[in-house]
């Protein structure tokens, strides 16, 4: 996998009547990765993705895709990009296959791509049905098939599992996971579901109220989750006094003493010290921050994802 940036934005901003739905976002998506663009509803994900596709004009900042400026090389960039933004787009009075044929002609790709894309999203048996008669999940699959049709170098998917049933969500996730290795496609997907990004993405960008709060690999995000050791003793005030004299920094938390980033040896030593001083240790717990805790810590708000 190479490390060149496929998508790169600099101070990308959008202003609507004094408000900044997107504020100085510096996005960096590397080639071959699945980049999860995570944020609560209304955080600015779709607006950012629309700016990457030229659907809306940035108020400030620049967008470079494949190393080329979007302003100057829009059509050449779009030729190598597939996308599904917000809801799936389709002509309801035409069949699934006819919808695909329209995209085929626009994208100038061979017939086999149509068959392959329909097969990938498992719509080959429903292709002669009018799109209006499709269920929401089938429309979503059709949208993904249309985005995949030219097997582009970059695939931008906005909430790709919306409207799918659990089995469909699983299938689409597996499909997305396989795209970089199977077809050399770099995927940029947005989601408000932390679990989805956790399962799919190799890199993540967290956006809230228009600002990018974190960007990096999933591993580096998880590393932000420090562990805390909680001790419960028969006499917490006495235990706290004792441990303070020994150089530990306990913090009272409900009926427990909390310690950040303690190694196993330190835990064993504390336990020994307390027992030797006739303070019974009734419980030792380790708590690691979940991705959700990290997200809430980053955004600084207790809000629903």
């Amino acid at each position: 996998m190479t490390t060149s940036a496929i998508v790169q934005t600099q101070k990308l901003s959008k202003t609507y009547s004094g408000l900044n739905p997107v504020n100085k976002v510096d996005l960096r998506v590397q080639e071959g990765e699945i980049y999860g663009f995570l944020g609560p509803n209304g955080a600015g994900k779709t607006t950012t993705l629309k700016m990457l596709l030229g659907l809306i004009k940035p108020s400030e900042g620049t967008v470079k895709i494949f190393g080329e400026s979007l302003n100057k090389h829009r059509l050449s960039i779009l030729q190598r990009t597939g996308s599904l933004i917000e809801s799936p787009s389709y002509y309801g009075h035409l069949t699934g296959l006819e919808n695909m044929k329209i995209m085929q002609r626009l994208r100038n790709v061979p017939d086999k791509n149509v068959d392959e894309a329909l097969r990938i999203v498992r719509l080959e048996n429903q292709k002669n049905k009018k799109a209006d008669q499709y269920s929401l999940g089938m429309k979503q699959r059709l949208g993904i098939a249309m985005a995949l049709l030219a097997f582009p170098k970059l695939l931008i998917l906005d909430e790709p599992t919306n409207g799918l049933d659990p089995a469909g969500i699983g299938e689409i996730r597996e499909l997305i996971k396989s795209l970089p290795a199977r077809y050399g496609i770099t995927v940029l997907l947005s989601s408000h579901l932390l679990s989805e990004v956790d399962q799919l993405a190799t890199s993540v960008g967290i956006i809230s109220e228009g600002s990018l709060l974190f960007q990096g690999s999933m591993t580096s995000l998880r590393e932000k989750g420090s562990t805390t050791i909680y001790l419960k003793t028969g006499d917490n005030p006495k235990a706290e006094q004792l441990l303070l004299t020994q150089g530990y920094s306990p913090a009272q938390s409900e009926s427990r003493l909390g310690f950040n980033n303690l190694g196993d040896a330190n835990v064993a030593e504390m336990n020994k010290l307390l027992v030797e001083n006739n303070i019974p240790v009734t419980r030792i717990e380790e708590q690691k921050k979940s991705l959700e805790d990290i997200f809430l810590e980053l955004t600084g708000k207790e809000r629903s994802l």
Partner: peptide, 16 residues
């Protein structure tokens, strides 16, 4: 038909 199926955005994200 471009409004109904939100297809205008699909068309303008192709290289046409």
């Amino acid at each position: 038909m471009e409004h109904k199926g939100s297809t205008w955005k699909m068309l303008v994200t192709t290289n046409v």
